[in-house]
């Protein structure tokens, strides 16, 4: 029996297996008591304070049972799936990482002490039980903790994505007419997202005209200016005409520096004028019109 080496998995030798079996039996027999102790210590430590006592007890029960199952089967998969699902629920309620680590470590403490009390007269058996229990318990604790952190990162990433989408809204003004007001700094990543959303919205709404209002964008680098021009061109290939409003003189200069003829872009001074231009284009159904004269207001 190797006592000092890290345990690669919960799979153990026959001797350890029988110890684990004894351990699992013990934890099942004392389920009610241990579960209550754990829940009480969670409440005493003021962990999971956003949850009610009933909620805590019901989660504690589920985690406890999964925990014992994981010890028994040697597989953390079910526990991991439950931990993820639990994390997803509690993250949205504001439960923090330290709380989750805290409750998992508390369970380890509760069970460890209980084992200590139960086997104190047979120190040799106690030592062997702990040898079997500790690596398994550590692995389970790590599984739950990491599941929570990963889930949290996923939620954060989703939220970032949602915020980015909100920052480049595409709105339908009326049938066949979209408007996209862009505000703030535009880097390459956001420009790429803008393109994807705008072209997707053209397809979904069968838009014939899109008004891109960039009044709220002070300046862009050459890559983003190039992206903007390419987006207008891609929209045209799909069958939609773009009107750009609120082009600052600085951005206009960046576009000219790229060697792009501003006359190729349908630019109108302000959003109001842009909408009128868009209505006119829709009204005449004249997708034949060459790009109109550009008028740039600085």
């Amino acid at each position: 029996m190797n006592q000092n080496q890290p345990v690669p998995s919960l799979q153990q030798s026959a001797a350890e297996a029988s110890l684990l079996h004894e351990l699992v039996e013990y934890l099942r027999e004392n389920r009610g008591d241990l579960r209550e102790q754990w829940a009480r210590r969670i409440t005493d430590a003021e962990l999971l304070s956003v949850m009610t006592a009933d909620e805590i007890f019901s989660e504690v029960t589920a985690v406890y049972d999964n925990y014992v199952d994981a010890l028994e089967t040697g597989s953390v998969e079910t526990l991991q799936a439950y931990a993820r699902e639990l994390s997803e629920r509690i993250i949205r309620r504001g439960v923090e990482t330290h709380e989750v680590l805290g409750i998992v470590l508390l369970l380890r403490d509760v069970l460890g002490r209980s084992l200590l009390d139960n086997y104190e007269e047979d120190r040799d058996l106690l030592r062997r039980i702990l040898d079997a229990y500790e690596p398994a318990a550590n692995r389970i604790a790590a599984t739950v903790g990491v599941s929570f952190v990963e889930e949290r990162e996923r939620v954060i990433r989703e939220q970032q994505e949602a915020i980015r989408e909100l920052s480049t809204p595409v709105l339908q003004v009326r049938d066949r007419l979209l408007i996209s007001p862009i505000i703030g700094a535009v880097d390459s990543d956001r420009a790429r997202q803008l393109t994807e959303q705008l072209l997707g919205a053209i397809q979904a709404n069968r838009a014939r005209v899109v008004v891109l209002d960039i009044t709220g964008v002070a300046s862009v680098d050459e890559a983003v200016a190039n992206h903007l021009v390419q987006t207008v061109e891609a929209a045209r290939l799909m069958g939609a005409r773009a009107v750009i409003t609120g082009l600052s003189s600085k951005i206009a200069q960046t576009i000219v520096d790229l060697g792009v003829d501003l006359g190729m872009l349908n630019t109108v001074g302000d959003l109001q004028g842009g909408l009128e231009e868009a209505e006119r284009m829709l009204g005449h159904r004249d997708a034949d019109v060459e790009p109109t004269e550009s008028s740039i207001e600085s």
Partner: peptide, 25 residues
């Protein structure tokens, strides 16, 4: 019916489609 991603690819490739006209549907 040029797909959005295909439209982007055509532009980046700098393919010339003149004198083709395009429409949404």
């Amino acid at each position: 019916g040029i797909q959005p991603d295909v439209a982007v690819a055509i532009v980046q490739f700098r393919l010339n489609l003149d004198p083709l006209r395009t429409a949404l549907d």
